[in-house]
Design a protein around this nucleic acid. Structure first.
Length: 425
RNA sequence: GCUGGGUUCGCAUAGCGGCAAUUGCUUGUGGCUGUAGACCACACGGUCGAAAGGCCUACGGGGGUUCGAGUCCCUCACCCAGCA
């Protein structure tokens, strides 16, 4: 399907017979992306600790950056003058930018650690501990949070004010008050010049009740249409964002709405459990046109990739591989001890690795596993050497990118169900 | 030799009559899903207990005052500074 201008199109190459999984091909101005696909996240025009050349040799097909961060530093105009995001960061493959709605909301309203039950009695602790709490215009009670340095810092943060037309928020860099709306986001994303862009959306908290969520969804829908209207370039593919929290009718409405108006669709939100996450996908996917690319925003743990792909989602992005990589929480294949319960990871700083001369994940062909032992990696993390973060990031990104490569191949070879079974049991 | 100051859980610190005893580091174990995150949380004398909690040892050694002593007094040892 031709999606925008003359040079962006998406075609389905192969459909899985046992699930909704499919292999697709997205042609963009900077090259072809095969789906299913995982986008490494490079918020500030860099995937932390990795160079663009590292990413290329790892096999990444695309990098996702963030409009909000880049708008503040160095600014959209600067990046435009430097030839756009890809050229700026020496990356000649496709790029994507997130709208920034997620940040404006989360940074303004504050992100807190919650061990609490939501209004439906569901525990918010195991999966998404970071949720976004009530905006200024809600009357919802705040959960109790641990009194830490973090809380003291929160007092310094001024709340963002979400209005129907946009958001007043305070820069996390210097506290300056700024206005952000669909026009700002799209204008900046056009300056950044990514191949794939995202409509400006409002992010609901999983703690909100139906009415608050509905109000938030109305903003997302309105801002979505404004984003389309603000678009002037024809060489950028814009994803609309589905919201509606945990409410079936809101999600279904939003999925239909997004599919109707946008050439590409994405699902946004925060989820209190994996069950909720998978449920949301089940609700939404039937409303998506077959030949539009589908992006699962912010999702990308191993199990979620299998579940998302089998539900028909094509694109994923997630900070987990890089953040976990920097924190010494590194991925393992099932044969080396990775499983659902440990998120397919191990903590390399554990004492048991102190004399372990094996590669991190035997059988893995990444640079880290080809050259270093577990004992050495543990040492790097114990001594806070930056090479540890880098080697951890290299492995984790390689692991996830190649996992998705393998899944794509499995779909083509008609053994996706078998592979999923081998990994998830 | 004299005069001051000091000796507290691996290291460094707080403590000025009710204390298994503060804080930082180290260490241990968790957690991280569109990145204000090279971050955050918890534990950290021993032992019993699922827990509440109990029982042992502990603030350089020894002695004393006190219902009760890292905390006050005496004494010994060692360390630091100044003066001989």
């Amino acid at each position: 399907m031709l999606l925008a201008g003359m040079n962006i199109k998406f075609t389905i190459e192969k459909r899985d017979k046992t699930s909704k999984a499919r292999v697709g091909k997205l042609v963009t101005p900077h090259g072809v992306i095969m789906t299913p696909n995982f986008n490494p996240v490079g918020t500030q025009a860099t995937v932390k600790t990795l160079s663009s050349q590292d990413l290329k040799s790892i096999g990444a097909q695309i990098v996702l950056s963030n409009t909000y961060h880049l708008m503040l530093r160095p600014g959209g105009e600067i990046i435009a003058k430097m030839g756009g995001l890809g050229k700026f960061m020496s990356w000649d493959k496709p790029t994507m930018t997130d709208s920034g709605g997620f940040q404006v909301f989360s940074l303004g309203v504050a992100q807190k650690k919650v061990t609490w039950k939501d209004i439906h009695g569901r525990k918010i602790s195991k999966f998404s501990k970071s949720v976004f709490l009530s905006p200024a215009d809600t009357t919802m009670q705040l959960p109790s949070v641990t009194k830490t340095r973090e809380e003291k810092q929160l007092k310094k943060l001024k709340e963002a004010k979400v209005h129907d037309e946009g958001v007043w928020f305070y820069s996390h860099v210097d506290g300056k008050k700024l206005w952000f709306d669909a026009q700002t986001s799209i204008k900046t994303q056009e300056q950044l010049s990514a191949d794939l862009i995202v409509a400006f959306d409002d992010h609901e908290s999983p703690l909100w009740d139906y009415e608050l969520t509905k109000l938030s969804l109305e903003r997302t829908s309105r801002w979505g249409l404004e984003s389309l209207k603000a678009q002037t370039r024809q060489d950028q593919l814009m994803y609309g964002v589905v919201h509606g929290g945990i409410y079936e009718d809101l999600r279904k409405f939003s999925a239909g709405f997004t599919n109707k108006y946008f050439p590409a669709v994405s699902i946004g939100g925060s989820y209190s459990s994996k069950d909720v996450l998978y449920q949301v996908m089940d609700w939404c996917v039937p409303y998506f046109q077959e030949d539009k690319p589908r992006h699962m925003l912010g999702i990308g743990e191993v199990q979620d990739l299998f579940e998302g792909i089998s539900r028909g989602m094509d694109f994923f992005d997630c900070v987990a591989p890089t953040r976990r990589g920097r924190h010494g929480n590194l991925y393992l294949q099932p044969k080396n001890g990775g499983h659902k319960e440990n998120n397919f990871t191990t903590q390399i700083t554990n004492t048991k690795y102190i004399l372990d001369s094996n590669p991190l994940d035997p059988g893995c062909e990444c640079y880290t596993c080809q050259n270093y032992t577990r004992a050495y990696l543990r040492h790097l993390f114990m001594t806070d050497e930056i090479l540890g973060q880098r080697l951890g990031s290299i492995h984790n990104i390689y692991f996830i990118v190649h996992l998705v490569d393998q899944i794509r191949q499995a779909i083509l070879d008609e053994r996706f169900a078998q592979m999923k079974q081998e990994w998830l049991g």
